[in-house]
């Protein structure tokens, strides 16, 4: 098992190198002028050129790329943001707690809503409740997040005036972004859970359990749900990893200082070191979460566990 984990951890390195290469290449292809960005429009062309030279911006692509990789992967040195002048790592770490708080709370929320309603929907297939849930989840899943976010502002901030529309002042500021994100993420999870549970409920082993005389509650939670849990954990885990890299839509609509918003601003300003830092951070945290999900599934499924034993 440990050998497997180590192998997977080492595999993250080439993935990150690939990510760095792609982003680096794209950034080099777009016209940008870091010297001008740092010094501002009022600075003379000479001093801008001089700074560009100093930053090594005029060197060939491969030299700059290898230099960046050496600094980043060997010394964990990601440079300073062109815009604020602060180290990239500190910028990301300043923004991460906001994202983390949002992601953790909303993951718990939408998992509870999506999974319980999904199981209910499957167990009561074709009932009125199931029909309502199916239509509702389809509708919610069809609305784009940014639309939901703006409707939230329109209704709760503008008309009702109950909740703030941007920034973080107190606990109320979290309600709209977290609530709406959870709502929109619970819809696809509900549909997934319903499908998986329905597939399990038709399996032969369920009939065996019923033939033992087990009450329906036990059949569902002790057998059907346990067997359905694995693919659900997989989906939620991977989504958790993806959103830890920033909940871009919610953070930007509600102007929250999260990693997603940070990356978005960096991209708008062509803040190269910050863009690179954010991308590597998102990719690394995603890879780690996928690994965690794989380990969890290996431990909860005896069939998968047998494969990695020893």
């Amino acid at each position: 098992m440990w050998k497997y984990v180590l192998k997977r951890l080492l595999l993250i390195i080439p993935i990150l190198l690939g990510v760095v290469f792609i982003v680096f290449a794209i950034m080099s292809l777009t016209p940008s002028d870091p010297g001008r960005l740092i010094l501002g429009i009022s600075a003379s062309q000479e001093s801008v050129d001089q700074l560009n030279d100093q930053l090594g911006y005029n060197r060939p692509f491969m030299t700059r790329f290898l230099d960046y990789v050496k600094e980043a992967f060997l010394k964990f040195e990601f440079g300073n943001s062109y815009n604020s002048g602060k180290p990239v790592v500190r910028e990301i770490m300043n923004n991460f707690p906001t994202t983390l708080k949002m992601v953790v709370i909303s993951t718990v929320l939408y998992s509870i809503i999506g999974i319980t309603l999904g199981v209910f929907s499957a167990v009561k297939q074709y009932s009125a409740g199931d029909n309502i849930l199916r239509v509702a989840s389809m509708a919610v899943a069809a609305f784009p997040q940014f639309w939901l976010a703006m409707m939230g502002i329109l209704v709760f901030s503008l008309y009702l005036g109950w909740l703030p529309s941007n920034g973080i002042d107190n606990w109320k500021s979290w309600i709209l972004p977290i609530g709406l994100y959870s709502l929109s993420a619970s819809a696809p999870l509900l549909r997934l859970t319903r499908t998986i549970v329905l597939e399990q409920i038709r399996q032969d082993y369920v009939r065996t359990v019923r033939a033992k005389g087990a009450p329906e509650k036990r059949v569902i939670w002790k057998h059907v749900f346990k067997n359905s849990a694995l693919p659900i954990i997989n989906t939620v885990g991977v989504q958790f990893g993806a959103s830890l890299g920033g909940m871009v839509v919610m953070e930007s609509v509600y102007s929250l200082p999260g990693v997603g918003n940070l990356a978005l601003t960096a991209m708008r300003q062509k803040d190269m070191p910050l863009i690179m830092g954010c991308t590597i951070f998102m990719a690394a945290i995603f890879c780690l979460m996928v690994l965690v999900v794989d380990i969890v599934s290996a431990y909860s499924d005896p069939r998968v566990k047998a494969k990695y034993a020893g």
Partner: peptide
């Protein structure tokens, strides 16, 4: 069918 009659994760 005994192959499918038992709960695979118990």
């Amino acid at each position: 069918d005994p192959m499918t009659a038992l709960d695979p994760i118990m």
